[in-house]
Simulated assay, not measured.
Amino acid sequence: MEDTLDPRLPPEPAMRFAEDDPLDHVAEWGPTATPVGTFQLVPVQIERDLALISGWMNDPAVAAYWHLAGPPVVTALHLRTQLAGDGRSAPCLGVLDGTPIGYWEIYRADLDPLARHYPARPHDTGIHLLIGQPADRGRGLGSALLEAIAQLILDRRSACARVVAEPDIRNTPSLSAFLRAGFRVSGEVELPGKRAALMVRERVLRDAP
């Protein structure tokens, strides 16, 4: 594959999985059954996945909210920033029945700048996502996967009592998907570059470990 990375960039960092991993080893969560197929979060490898993710970022419907349109180096810089941290954010491909269908970030919301904008609780876990292909949008796929991943987070992270997200309030399809996935609107927050709806799914008794 042709090397599309800017040679001035530092080498690709490896995902760190310390003994006290902030996200409880997302790479080891494995597949989960959903109403639309078997879904798995697969940690991003830039050399393998850059062309695919960059292509998604250049879709106008995605670029309007992710702001990563442009040459592959734009996406590469974003991914490298995610990977170079201390494990508090895990950039992943969302793989459905063996096919990558979107990009996901699972992150520690309580350790993120987002925590300055809402009453964060310890171990709050956040989700960012995009569905890559236009044909996969608007047919309930996103909400089914969101519901499954929110439940997976609560199953795999016993210390986490809430899953949160902050989609742009203009992104009505995303808001609808979160609502159908069992999230509620907790309020609105002003974030750099957007006004967001704070979406929250709390652990209930049946989710208790």
Rank of each mutant, 00 (worst) to 15 (best):
residue 171 N to K: 12
residue 143 S to N: 03
residue 138 G to I: 02
residue 174 S to Q: 03
residue 144 A to N: 03
residue 170 R to W: 15
residue 155 D to F: 13
residue 134 P to I: 07
residue 144 A to S: 08
residue 163 V to E: 06
residue 148 A to M: 11
residue 146 L to I: 01
residue 175 L to K: 02
residue 127 I to L: 10
residue 157 R to I: 07
residue 158 S to F: 12
residue 169 I to C: 06
residue 157 R to Q: 12
residue 161 A to P: 04
residue 136 D to Y: 14
residue 160 C to N: 04
residue 166 E to T: 07
residue 162 R to I: 03
residue 154 L to T: 11
residue 149 I to H: 15
residue 149 I to Y: 12
residue 130 L to G: 00
residue 140 G to N: 06
residue 165 A to M: 07
residue 162 R to E: 13
residue 173 P to M: 00
residue 139 R to E: 15
residue 154 L to Y: 15
residue 169 I to F: 14
residue 155 D to E: 13
residue 132 G to Q: 07
residue 159 A to V: 10
residue 151 Q to E: 11
residue 157 R to M: 13
residue 167 P to Y: 06
residue 135 A to P: 01
residue 163 V to F: 08
residue 175 L to G: 00
residue 174 S to I: 01
residue 148 A to R: 12
residue 126 G to W: 15
residue 132 G to K: 08
residue 140 G to Q: 06
residue 145 L to V: 03
residue 168 D to W: 10
residue 148 A to V: 13
residue 147 E to V: 04
residue 168 D to H: 15
residue 132 G to I: 05
residue 172 T to Y: 09
residue 144 A to C: 05
residue 136 D to V: 06
residue 141 L to T: 02
residue 148 A to N: 07
residue 133 Q to D: 12
residue 124 D to P: 10
residue 162 R to F: 10
residue 127 I to S: 03
residue 167 P to L: 02
residue 146 L to G: 00
residue 147 E to F: 10
residue 140 G to F: 12
residue 141 L to R: 03
residue 129 L to V: 09
residue 175 L to T: 00
residue 168 D to Y: 08
residue 134 P to R: 07
residue 153 I to N: 03
residue 171 N to Q: 11
residue 136 D to P: 06
residue 124 D to V: 10
residue 169 I to M: 14
residue 152 L to W: 13
residue 129 L to K: 10
residue 164 V to W: 13
residue 173 P to S: 00
residue 159 A to R: 10
residue 137 R to C: 09
residue 131 I to G: 00
residue 129 L to Y: 14
residue 171 N to V: 06
residue 126 G to S: 04
residue 165 A to N: 15
residue 128 H to N: 09
residue 149 I to A: 14
residue 148 A to H: 13
residue 138 G to Y: 11
residue 156 R to C: 07
residue 157 R to T: 01
residue 125 T to M: 04
residue 127 I to H: 13
residue 155 D to L: 14
residue 137 R to M: 08
residue 149 I to F: 10
residue 125 T to K: 07
residue 149 I to C: 09
residue 137 R to F: 11
residue 159 A to P: 05
residue 161 A to H: 10
residue 168 D to M: 07
residue 162 R to P: 02
residue 125 T to N: 04
residue 141 L to G: 01
residue 145 L to K: 00
residue 129 L to E: 08
residue 145 L to C: 02
residue 127 I to P: 04
residue 162 R to A: 09
residue 142 G to A: 11
residue 168 D to K: 08
residue 135 A to W: 12
residue 166 E to F: 12
residue 175 L to I: 11
